[in-house]
């Protein structure tokens, strides 16, 4: 067991290093540098040059990379020229918002996927299954951004059941009950939109997993022993089919990140995705780099987590 984890960590470390190099190179390719945001254009170019020298911007790239990594490790991701504040401070609040949005999405995803997947797999080729399969078909064919747009139009603008932007009603006091309710209210529509689309993967996986397991010998044996149908499903089939799905949440992170970019942008929800879009449109590149780096690390760690959990559940994976 621990061998697998150690071996897996040996893969993770270079991934993070490689990611940081990629992000650093991306930052180098972006026009402008840390100074273009800070300094008044009226300042004498000679002074800027001195400043550049002082900040190490004339150093070879590997020295700059080292400096960048060291300061990133200390929590210094540079300055946002648009907000005139350290990126770290800027990101903090956004990160929390995105965290809640992703969490809500994940919960709703599983809330939808598990009953639908089980019904569909257990009663396969019945009318119920056909309806659910039809839903997954449509879900696969619908781009998230179009669905989110339609949801916003319908429930945000037309019925006005949900707010159409922001993460909390202005003026509500942090910590109060109404604040929490307002947060949830803002969160719900984006999370539902995202979950309804992303869940189809899991529904389909669960369905085929259950259909496969149903035909395995140990299930036939359980039936032959006289176990009741509900016992067969609850004790034997579900235990085998649900665990891997629960472990997939780490892999979902990569997908969620793409989703948050669209959904936060459409719902003007102030999370990392919207921050990313705003920053890239405003050419606030130090923020862009940081968001990509943080999201990249998040998906690397998510995959690591899922791999470890899966290997705990299913020893066969450890051997590969």
């Amino acid at each position: 067991m621990w061998k697998f984890i150690v071996r897996r960590l040996f893969i993770t470390a270079p991934q993070i290093v490689l990611l940081s190099v990629l992000v650093f190179l991306m930052a180098q390719m972006m026009p402008g540098d840390a100074l273009s945001g800070l300094i008044d254009p009226n300042i004498d170019p000679q002074a800027i040059e001195q400043q550049r020298e002082k900040l190490g911007l004339n150093n070879p790239w590997y020295v700059q990379y080292k400096d960048w990594v060291v300061s990133a490790l200390q929590g210094d991701l540079g300055q946002s020229f648009r907000f005139k504040m350290p990126v770290t401070d800027l990101v903090e609040q956004r990160l929390i918002n995105t965290f809640w949005l992703s969490l809500a999405t994940l919960i709703i995803t599983y809330l939808i996927a598990i009953p639908l997947g089980i019904t569909s797999g257990r009663f396969n080729d019945t009318l119920r299954d056909q309806i659910i399969t039809g839903y997954t078909y449509i879900g696969f064919a619908t781009p998230l951004f179009i669905f989110a747009l339609v949801m916003l139009w319908l429930f945000g603008f037309h019925f006005q059941w949900f707010p159409t932007s922001g993460s909390v009603a202005p003026g509500s006091e942090a910590g109060s009950l109404s604040y929490v309710i307002s947060k949830l209210h803002h969160l719900l529509l984006p999370a539902i939109s995202m979950a309804l689309i992303t869940t189809v993967n899991t529904v389909q996986y669960l369905r085929s997993e259950i259909i496969d397991t149903k035909q395995k010998d140990f299930i036939i044996t359980a039936r032959a022993k006289g176990a009741s149908e509900s016992r067969v499903y609850n004790r034997h089939i579900l235990r085998n089919s649900l665990l891997p799905i629960a472990a997939f949440f780490g892999y979902e992170i990569t997908g969620l990140i793409g989703g948050t970019v669209f959904v936060e942008f459409i719902y003007s929800y102030p999370g990392m995705g919207l921050l990313f879009m705003d920053s890239i449109l405003q050419r606030d590149y130090s923020v862009v780099t940081s968001v990509v780096l943080l999201f990249g690390i998040a998906s690397i760690l998510g995959a690591l987590l899922s791999d470890i959990i899966l290997s705990l559940i299913d020893p066969r994976i450890r051997i590969k």
Binding site: I11, P14, Q15, L18, L19, L22, M26, M29, M30, P31, T254, I257, G258, V261, F276, I280, R283, V288, V291, V292, F295, G296, S299, I300, A303
Partner: peptide, 22 residues
């Protein structure tokens, strides 16, 4: 396959957007 793993794990939507922008 390690290279593929790395690419798979990138937040590719953001990376594509950044490249398109720069």
């Amino acid at each position: 396959m390690r290279i593929v793993d790395f690419f798979m794990i990138l937040p590719f939507l953001m990376v594509i957007i950044v490249f398109v922008a720069i």
